[in-house]
Amino acid sequence: MKKLPLLFGMLCALLISHGSASAQKGSPLFPQAPGMAAYTYRYSFPKGVEATLDTIQALGITELEVGGNAFGLAPDSLRKLLDMRGMTAPSVGAGYEQVVENPQEVARVAKILGANYVQVAWIPHEKDNFTFEDAQKAVADFNRAGKVLRENGLTLNYHTHGYEMKPYQSGTLFDYMVRNTDPKYVSFTMDMLWAYHGGQDPAKLLLKYPNRWTTMHLKDMKKGVKGDFTGLMPVENDVALGQGQLDVPAILKAAKKVGIKHYFIEDESPRVITQVPITLAYLKSLKE
């Protein structure tokens, strides 16, 4: 990690925070500290897990959504590093195949890390062509694996990724998935960028299924970029919150209303050193 870009980003964040806060009055719209999706620092963790954790901790973040591989460490080793920094991992990512083929092992790792949620972010399908059959199979797989995870005290979350927003009957394939997954075993992560990229209004989608969402990825999409049903987009199009197309205040109000339990910043851009502090300052600046 280079210190100069980090200090520059933090300085920008402080300036933005001061200016925005002085311009607005009222109670904070987002009073809590957000968590961080470890994927945001996917290029940094391989260079040094402890140094990257220290960088995240220095931003005032105590919740981390980690990948199922635990950065190549034994799960108990990663748990010790988190404990040493007063950090927790309420959500753990896992691949679709991992969850379907060996949910018991996924549960074992998640429990060592102290997680409550196991998140699947991608359903395998033919490129650019997520079909009803793909959704139907995912529903059956998620119900089955979710039952095993629930028996281990965990909740299976499927993370919206845009391609499941394709039209189906009077709604979308995502509507089909929500209606046909068992609420006892399957919940959802609202990735606000990918829901928007797939043509949905994230705030309205949250309110449409108020009892099915547990976690959220905080992210924004560059102005002028058009979405589609691929679930794919150049990472350069990820921008700091408040600088893109999404109506962040409206989404956060809806998330608060439906009781989202954990919020994680996920910035897929190559500019996280400067963008993450700006996102944090923007969140602090928002008022009811």
Rank of each mutant, 00 (worst) to 15 (best):
G67R: 13
K222W: 06
A145D: 04
P234S: 10
E164M: 11
I251R: 08
G244T: 08
G162R: 13
H125R: 10
F30N: 07
K147M: 12
A135K: 11
N102W: 04
Q200D: 06
K256N: 14
I265W: 00
K166G: 05
L82A: 05
G72M: 12
E65H: 02
M192P: 00
A115P: 00
L218M: 11
P202E: 06
N69I: 11
K253N: 05
Y117K: 09
F188V: 07
G48M: 06
Q98S: 09
F264D: 04
E126G: 05
M192V: 14
V276G: 04
M36E: 07
K80M: 06
A195Y: 01
I251M: 03
D175K: 15
K226V: 11
I123H: 02
K222T: 14
K256Q: 14
K208A: 13
E105I: 04
S20N: 06
T181H: 02
L149T: 09
D228H: 04
V178T: 07
V49N: 00
E50V: 15
L246W: 05
F264H: 02
A38L: 09
A110H: 05
D220R: 15
E50L: 10
H161K: 07
G114D: 08
L73S: 01
L252K: 06
R144E: 09
D267M: 13
P202A: 06
V239Y: 01
I278N: 02
K226L: 12
Q24I: 14
T214I: 06
V239N: 00
Q275W: 06
H217T: 08
T274Q: 04
D141L: 04
P124Y: 13
P277Q: 15
L205W: 03
K127Y: 03
S170V: 15
Q24A: 15
N102A: 03
N211V: 05
N116R: 14
G93E: 02
V99C: 05
K256I: 02
W122K: 06
L73I: 12
P210D: 07
Y96R: 09
